[in-house]
Simulated assay, not measured.
Amino acid sequence: MRLATIRTRNGTAAVRVDPAALVEIQGHDDVGQLLRQDNWRELAQAADGPRHAVDGADRAPVVPHPGKIVCVGHNYRNHIREMGREIPEYPALFAKYQESLIGPFDDLVLPPESSAVDWEAELAVVVGKAGRRIPFDEAESYIAGYSVLNDVSMRDYQFRTVEWLQGKTWEASTPFGPDLVTVDEFSPGPLMTAAVDGAVMQQTPTGDLVFTPAFLVSYISTIITLNPGDVIATGTPGGVGHARDPKIYLKGGQVLETSIEGLGTLTNRIVEV
């Protein structure tokens, strides 16, 4: 099953994504709100609300208001090598805030303060039920599904200090969507690609993770309770612009496309102010 959040004239609405239409799941403003219901699967499957055309729908971030966005750094071996680091023993974790999210087809506006805006294609895990200290062998049952995210990074701000947050949670900088695909229809492994104006910059199987989604759910829940709608961004593979020689960054007028086979594609036009 595929779920999404769309913008309508009355606000936002959670929808089930069918081949011929987007079907509103009435009473739920977005996918995150839906996931807070224990019977969210049944509610989504039974939905028979207003229908919207699939093409041209105004997509919001698939979970617009997650309580937490926990991001993982250095989780693909090829990216770890290109950044000159060692394979980590434990995940490098940092946070984003919900204000950083934009829709899967929204314009990405370059902040005038940064001259080093970079792409980072990522597989996103969306939590489906609350848990603390979740055993590893139970962790997959806490995952509602998967989506696509680009952890667009302001490298000049990121590397001002050894802490990354200031370069990673810039407002309106993180495309997220287009759908949540439930765990019965997707598991990590398919190819992830980031392209700028059609030129492939990153391309790596999503199964090539150092720390798997199940491990991350278990590990992060040791630190803090995970709640329905929380998001884990699982890290980016090699091919980022900052690691190239010479370095390459996003420019106004370009189009950034981020795709994972089986999940969908983010398409974001880069805009200068």
Results as ranks from 00 to 15, higher is better:
residue 7 R to N: 13
residue 9 R to M: 09
residue 9 R to E: 04
residue 11 G to Y: 13
residue 17 V to K: 11
residue 18 D to K: 14
residue 20 A to Y: 11
residue 23 V to Y: 12
residue 23 V to P: 07
residue 24 E to F: 14
residue 24 E to C: 14
residue 26 Q to Y: 10
residue 32 G to P: 09
residue 36 R to L: 13
residue 43 L to C: 15
residue 48 D to H: 09
residue 49 G to W: 06
residue 50 P to G: 15
residue 52 H to A: 14
residue 57 A to W: 10
residue 74 H to F: 13
residue 84 G to W: 11
residue 84 G to L: 06
residue 88 P to L: 03
residue 90 Y to G: 06
residue 94 F to I: 02
residue 95 A to L: 14
residue 96 K to A: 02
residue 97 Y to G: 08
residue 97 Y to C: 01
residue 110 L to M: 06
residue 119 W to Y: 03
residue 128 G to W: 05
residue 133 R to S: 11
residue 137 D to F: 10
residue 137 D to Y: 08
residue 145 G to Y: 00
residue 151 D to H: 04
residue 152 V to S: 00
residue 156 D to M: 01
residue 158 Q to V: 01
residue 161 T to C: 00
residue 161 T to F: 00
residue 162 V to M: 12
residue 166 Q to I: 05
residue 167 G to Q: 01
residue 178 P to L: 12
residue 180 L to F: 11
residue 182 T to R: 04
residue 185 E to P: 04
residue 190 P to D: 11
residue 201 M to P: 11
residue 204 T to F: 01
residue 205 P to N: 08
residue 206 T to G: 03
residue 206 T to Q: 03
residue 212 T to L: 03
residue 213 P to L: 09
residue 213 P to A: 12
residue 217 V to A: 12
residue 221 S to A: 06
residue 228 P to N: 10
residue 229 G to K: 08
residue 230 D to I: 09
residue 230 D to M: 05
residue 230 D to F: 03
residue 233 A to C: 04
residue 237 P to I: 13
residue 238 G to M: 11
residue 240 V to Q: 05
residue 241 G to W: 06
residue 257 E to V: 00
residue 258 T to V: 15
residue 259 S to Y: 12
residue 263 L to Q: 07
residue 265 T to P: 00
residue 267 T to E: 08
residue 268 N to I: 02
